[in-house]
Nucleic acid binder design. Structure first.
Length: 546
RNA sequence: GGCCCCUUCGUCUAGUCUGGUCUAGGACACUAGGUUUUCAUCCUAGUAACACGGGUUCAAAUCCCGUAGGGGUCACCA
């Protein structure tokens, strides 16, 4: 083989992720970032993070911070751009030029505009007659047919008749900033981006970008448009889904308890963490709770207050929602990588190293995909169950410190270890134990009628009798550990010739938890403690006895 | 509505470019059975798809045309 027959040297791959900071990082954005990241990493290229804040009214610094935080949580790193944020980012300012890394800084379009990057090129277009002034804006002439190739969707041809001149520089009310179309084209070209990987909503804009590239004398990049991620009902996943869910719950609550109770509930609700509603809304809200109820606003603040006050979880839409719900970042990534891409064999569970090795743009599909929470949950549950117990304990305690502090307060540290062990195999998310194990922390539960009937009152109170007798055994137990308690039940079963462990365990469960479901009965009693167990049995017998 | 794009089990998908190996494979969900003190886990089995209609061909999930359905876009938002 001679040097001539070798492939010509390919220029290094440069991809970019270019969010506009108008809210938290959306799950679709996360997949776009993941694919851009994986492609760059696979080819030893560069990933640029560029912030497209040409919309002065909607862009917020909090959103930029939130997006960076979410990317970091996911473990996606970039080679050029703002940040990454240091461990404690309270005083860190991503807009600070010194904190931006890379040869093409700044990476904020607002700052690039201030540097005159866009105006210079707009003037060029004006001078050559390819653009013209229209009122106080500048428009680009679209008078040619455009053909381009999309890596995913293939060749696309658009006739000049279907294209219109479009604004490349906004007027006074837009601060005379470049529009997205102009800024994105200029930046991708000047930053040396070889592959523009983005959502398919941009496919229809691409003729504009191609024409602009041609007019400015830039090489056109490879365009890679990704199909959309939809809800289970086929609608597009959006932030509004959270507001919808909250509104539905709030309406039900108001119908049952009245509007005063609704407002009272909001007053009592303390959203946690604060960042839940801290992003994307930099204007003080003038909307009332009634406005939210009646659909005049989708304010994230009300979503947060309602969900917290009513104890419901809105559907996870943004990356931070998945974090909050207790999904593992690499599992989320694994799952969304499968939406529109696959390695070509039956492998579904993989780590990021595998993704990097196998990622291939040619294997990206064209079809929109529906987000299947059940499958994600299964992936997550499996990953949680497979973790070493100590690791699970550590991340669980971390999660609970953030979101369910009361569990740490009521269970002591040793107790929390037992708690974690009891729920490791039963948890779909890190939040699951908080729902499943509420009874450990809150004793004033109601008894499930079906469970009571089946396990206590049936057959003339057979279960209740067992409970009464076994209470005495427990009262005289001096070694209150899971193992001892387990043996105690075993010998009790044998002594009284009962059918099986369940004859004792089930009545106990109902007395201790109000339901027929709990972790193993030994650890459950051990964690509850002798006093609470005896008290709960007494309360149960008193409440349930005919 | 114009333009562009898409269409395999309920869902994510393999297979389509290079027609035969596809009586269409896997995963999640679902159903049944087993294990278990409950739940969960785990094990075993099962149900289930080429949108429709025409072509081309010895042969079509795979190629062509049409129809239907879905998505995107038509902003001084990105």
């Amino acid at each position: 083989m001679t040097a001539q027959t070798d492939k010509p040297p390919v220029s290094p791959i440069v991809t970019r992720f270019a969010p506009s900071p108008t809210g938290n990082l959306h799950i679709g954005g996360a997949r776009t970032a993941l694919f851009a990241w994986a492609f760059a990493r696979k080819h030893g290229g560069q990933l640029i993070l560029r912030i497209e804040d040409t919309d002065r009214a909607r862009s917020t610094p909090q959103s930029t911070q939130g997006i960076i935080r979410d990317l970091q949580w996911l473990g996606l790193d970039w080679d050029q751009g703002p940040g990454p944020a240091p461990g404690s980012c309270e005083k860190w300012d991503p807009y600070d030029r010194d904190s931006q890394l890379g040869p093409h800084a700044p990476y904020f379009q607002s700052q690039r505009h201030e540097a005159g990057i866009y105006d210079k090129l707009i003037q060029k277009l004006l001078d050559s007659g390819q653009a013209y002034e229209d009122e106080d804006t500048v428009r680009f002439r679209m008078d040619k047919d455009i053909a381009f190739n999309d890596v995913v969707f293939g060749p696309i041809n658009i006739k000049a008749a279907d294209l219109e001149d479009f604004i490349i520089r906004k007027g006074e009310k837009g601060g005379r900033l470049p529009t997205f179309h102009f800024a994105v084209t200029v930046d991708d070209a000047t930053m040396g981006v070889t592959h523009v990987i983005r959502g398919q909503e941009h496919l229809a804009n691409t003729p504009k970008h191609a024409a602009l590239c041609d007019a400015l004398g830039f090489d056109r990049p490879q365009w890679v448009h990704l199909p959309s991620i939809m809800n289970a009902d086929g609608s597009k996943m959006s932030k509004r889904d959270k507001a919808k869910a909250a509104r539905k719950a709030a309406k039900t609550y108001t119908d049952e308890h009245g509007e005063n109770a609704y407002n009272e509930m909001l007053l009592q609700s303390h959203p946690e963490p604060m960042r839940f509603f801290d992003t994307g809304e930099n204007r003080p809200s003038t909307f009332t709770s009634t406005d939210f109820l009646e659909g005049r606003t989708d304010s994230a603040m009300y979503v947060s207050l309602i969900c917290n006050g009513l104890g419901i979880t809105p559907p996870e839409i943004e990356v931070d929602d998945f974090n909050r719900s207790g999904y593992l970042p690499h599992i989320l990534l694994n799952y969304i990588a499968l939406l529109g891409w696959n390695p070509g064999d039956d492998t579904e569970r993989f780590d990021m190293q595998f993704l990097i090795e196998h990622f291939d743009l040619a294997r990206i599909g064209k079809k929109n995909s529906q987000f299947d929470r059940a499958k994600l949950a299964k992936f997550n549950a499996e990953a949680l169950a497979e973790m070493p117990a100590e690791d699970f304990y550590c991340i669980l305690i971390d999660h609970f410190a953030n979101y369910h502090h009361e569990y740490l307060d009521k269970l002591n540290y040793a107790g929390f270890r037992t708690f974690a062990a009891a729920y490791q195999a039963r948890s779909q998310t890190l939040d699951s134990p908080a729902q499943l194990g509420r009874f450990f922390v809150y004793g004033e539960f109601e008894y499930n009628a079906k469970a009571v009937k089946k396990n206590l009152t049936k057959n003339d109170g057979e279960g209740l009798n067992v409970l009464r007798e076994f209470r005495d055994e427990l009262a005289s137990c001096n070694d209150w550990t899971a193992d001892t308690l387990h043996s105690l039940i075993e010998s009790f079963v044998e002594k009284h010739q009962l059918k099986n462990m369940g004859s004792v365990a089930q009545p106990l469960r109902v007395a201790l938890t109000g339901s027929a479901v709990s972790p193993e009965i030994g650890p459950t009693m051990a964690l509850l403690g002798k006093e609470a167990v005896l008290n709960r049995i007494d309360r149960c017998i008193k409440t349930v006895s005919p």
